[in-house]
Nucleic acid binder design. Structure first.
Lengths: 154, 154
DNA sequence: ATCATTGCAAACATTTTGCATATCT
DNA sequence: AGATATGCAAAATGTTTGCAATGAT
């Protein structure tokens, strides 16, 4: 068993339900956008989502992708990923607690799940506390590089 | 004693030395830019650096700020800060190991130093290891909000 | 003297906006 | 029907580029 995240299996018509739960209207466009977000590897930009999505909905505009992603983030369906590039936004459909590996060679950002690490950090701050700050969530950014031959599974 | 970083005291002519150590030419512009970066609170954007810098060097162009900051980052004098905004880059003159507090209310990114936490994380990975990844540095991103009245010192 | 850096302006890239039209509930 | 989302095109924002002139070593 790996700590690295596997891609979610193809979601069927459950997409509608996920949108409804989040209080969002299930438009044709949002369904396709959400589906793409779940299937795209890594942490796609709006552009990348758009490129995938026009295959199914050729008239779907980039502007709509931006608006849809914004509404997903506002509704908590999707997260924005912190990156050091800063010249484009990246999105992550995985809203569960997880950490990130930044590869300095390939610029990849790899998701990394580790409940044991989560617990360690939470316990540390439960004891220590942060003066003047109420912590909600933690995400560890690990910078380094992938080792040849022994790849972390995507 | 606080774990939150204080601003560095005004650097004298040591700026030249810092540039020289980094292998960078000490131009008038770079001296002013580096000085501004050290004095500006938080994690300024190129724009913000430029606004401060034109006070002392009115002809200093925004393009030059970008180029200077890039060269600082390449030389290890400065870091880019990971942020979730993604529509502009933020820089940090503090290259020592530290963590970040993200305030969801004010959007501030507050530096947070804690050697004990550094050790905890390092020990955790020394034992656990990351398959296929060679970690170089760790930075914990803590999302939450500042508590009224009891501010973390800037 | 040599080579890197600057300033400027134009190009590029990314994100946002406004509004008429279409679509969801 | 009523409210919200879409598509399009224009504008706003942020970053990069090319090149002649300047300045550092």
């Amino acid at each position: 068993m790996s700590h690295f995240s596997d891609h979610l299996p193809p979601s069927p018509g459950h997409l509608r339900a996920r949108l409804a739960e989040a209080g969002l209207r299930a438009t044709r466009q949002r369904l396709v956008i959400l589906e793409s977000l779940l299937h795209l590897p890594g942490h796609p930009t709006a552009e990348q989502v758009h490129r995938r999505v026009v295959g199914q909905e050729p008239s779907l505009s980039l502007g709509t992708v931006y608006k849809a992603l914004d509404s997903f983030v506002a509704a908590g369906l999707t997260r924005r990923v912190a990156s050091t590039e800063g010249s484009c936004r990246r999105y992550d459909a995985d809203c569960s607690a997880h950490h990130h590996l930044f590869c300095t060679d390939t610029q990849e950002i790899i998701d990394f799940h580790d409940p044991q690490l989560d617990t360690l950090i939470q316990e540390f701050f439960a004891v220590r506390g942060l003066q003047g700050f109420q912590a909600q969530s933690f995400s560890l950014h690990i910078t380094g590089n992938k080792l040849a031959g022994d790849e972390p599974r995507k």
